[in-house]
């Protein structure tokens, strides 16, 4: 059985993803020291933790805009990629949940197969929609306000005060961190633990050429998608 490679993750998305990952992990760790300095003393000084947290926040905000510009302007697939369809909501979510919670353990195949045109399963779409459109923007904005309070003090007061802003920032950050645990775990759920993680780093996903996608939406059948000129790359034989 020969293998084919699909170009699943284009370069800007890979850069965004790993900057984001490195940034968010740094933010979580520095964040813990910033909130609990009397319990955790990981970084040299409180000030260095604060500065690192601020810079990491800016990097995440920057990489977020890279993500947004790529999907919204360059590939113009933002909504298509992240917005669950009617079918996703009516059947897809339940199907995917059933897989994760039951049929996965019985050894069944994942009902969703990632293609460049249909990267995410219905549960991923819903989760990423909430995270990328609500959680990350809110955490970033509240963080930006906290990075320099004085110039936007009136805005802080409109929200209800510094403490309320901090509460929002802290709780949303906890949500993001909780998602991170789940995200990393689910990423290891392929045939091998690295099956889904590798394409995120290299951009290319390997698969058996004889294998047909299990769940095909619309015209996005695998062979035609893989050979699509939009990505600028064609399907290559495994070297």
């Amino acid at each position: 059985m020969s293998k084919i490679k699909i170009y699943l993750q284009p370069t800007p998305i890979r850069i965004w993803h790993w900057l984001n990952a490195f940034g968010i992990i740094t933010l979580c760790i520095t964040g813990v020291q910033i909130r609990f300095p009397d319990h955790l003393h990981l970084f040299a000084s409180y000030k260095s933790a604060i500065l690192l947290h601020n810079v990491a926040g800016l990097v995440v905000a920057f990489s977020f805009s890279l993500w947004f510009i790529y999907y919204a302007v360059v590939s113009r697939t933002l909504l298509k990629t992240y917005m669950p369809s009617r079918d996703d909501l009516e059947h897809g979510l339940a199907r995917q949940a059933k897989f994760y919670l039951l049929t996965y353990f019985l050894g069944w195949k994942n009902p969703h197969h990632a293609t460049p045109d249909n990267k995410f399963n219905p549960m991923q779409k819903s989760a990423y929609l909430a995270i990328m459109f609500i959680l990350v923007p809110l955490v970033s904005l509240s963080g930006l306000l906290l990075t320099n309070v004085s110039p936007m003090r009136d805005l802080v007061l409109m929200i209800g005060g510094l403490k309320i802003l901090v509460a929002i920032h802290f709780l949303l950050a906890c949500c993001l961190c909780a998602f991170l645990f789940t995200h990393v775990y689910l990423a290891t759920l392929g045939k091998t633990p690295l099956e889904h993680i590798k394409p995120m780093w290299t951009g290319w996903e390997e698969e058996d050429s004889t294998e047909q996608p299990h769940h095909v939406t619309g015209s996005s059948r695998l062979p035609s998608v893989a050979a699509m000129p939009r990505t600028g790359m064609t399907t290559r034989r495994r070297p």
């Binding site: 709780l171 906890c174 961190c177 909780a178 998602f179 645990f181 789940t182 775990y185």
Partner: peptide, 13 residues
């Protein structure tokens, strides 16, 4: 509250 949220994130793993 934050701890409960984090614990929620550990349910899956």
């Amino acid at each position: 509250v934050g701890l409960v949220i984090l614990a929620g994130g550990l349910v899956m793993p």
